[in-house]
Amino acid sequence: MDKLKIILKREGDVGLLEINNPPENYLEKPDFIEIDRLKNYLDTGIKALVISGTGRNFSAGANLESVKDQIKEVNSFQDQIENGNRILNYLDQLNIPVIASISGVCFGAGLEIALACDIRICEKNALFAFPEVNHNLFPGLGGVRRLTELTGKPTALQLVLNGDLINADKAFELNIIDQIAEKKQALENAITLAKKITNNRPLKVINAVMKSIHNSKILDIDEMIKEDAKLFSDLAVDTLRSDEN
C-alpha cells in the first residue's frame, strides 16, 4: 500500500495515523503500513497515537477483489498476513496509548486494527462486523483473540461465525467500544483525550504506565508486581536525580 493511503501527521505530541483510501478506506494489503516507517515516525517524540479513517468511514477492511488476486500467490499472501500480524502486534504492545477514532463502517481487517488499539471511541452511527465468514474466511490478524478478550468466548464466536453486523450501542454493551461520540465528533474526542492523558507527562512516565498495563495481560501477578516495582524505582531514581540537580 503506498504512502498516500496511510497518512502520518501530528498535532503537537499526538500522532495521527489516517487510513486514506476513501470512501470505504479499503485496506489493499494485510500489511497496510511499512513497520519501519511507523517506528521512525513514532520515534520523533510522539506521546499518543490516534488512528482514524479519511472521510465518513474508518475502514471497510480488505478489498475482496484484491484479496482474491493476492491469494493466487499463496506464499506471498501468507507472508503478507504474517507481516500484518506483526504490525498489529506492534501497535498492540506500543508503550504509548493508541486510540481508535471510528466513524461509519469498521469491518474485517479495519475492525482488527481497531481492536489492536488501547481505547476505542466511535460515533453513534458506526457499524461493526467481521464479514469474513461470508467468504469462507476468518479474521486473520489476531482479531478473534482480541475480540474474545473483550467480549468473552460466546459473543466472539457468534460475531465471527455469524458475521453479525452490530451498531455502536451494541458494541458498547459488548465491551468492544469504550466511548460513544456524537456524529462527526469521534476524532475530536480522541485527540482531546490523547492530549488530556499525555500533556505534561514525560514520555518515560507514559512508557512505564503502558508497559505495566501490557504486563498485566501477559505476566502472572507476582511477576507483574516485581516489574511494577522496578518501573517505579527507575522513575523514582530519575526524580531523585533531577531534584538533586
Binding site: 505534561n200 507527562r201 512516565v205 504506565v209 501477578i221 508486581i225 511494577d228 530519575d238
Partner: peptide, 13 residues
C-alpha cells in the same frame, strides 16, 4: 503520574 511515578503496589493490575 503527576509526580513522575506510577502506582507501584498493584494499582494498575
Amino acid at each position: 503520574s503527576t509526580f513522575g511515578l506510577i502506582p507501584g503496589v498493584g494499582g494498575i493490575p
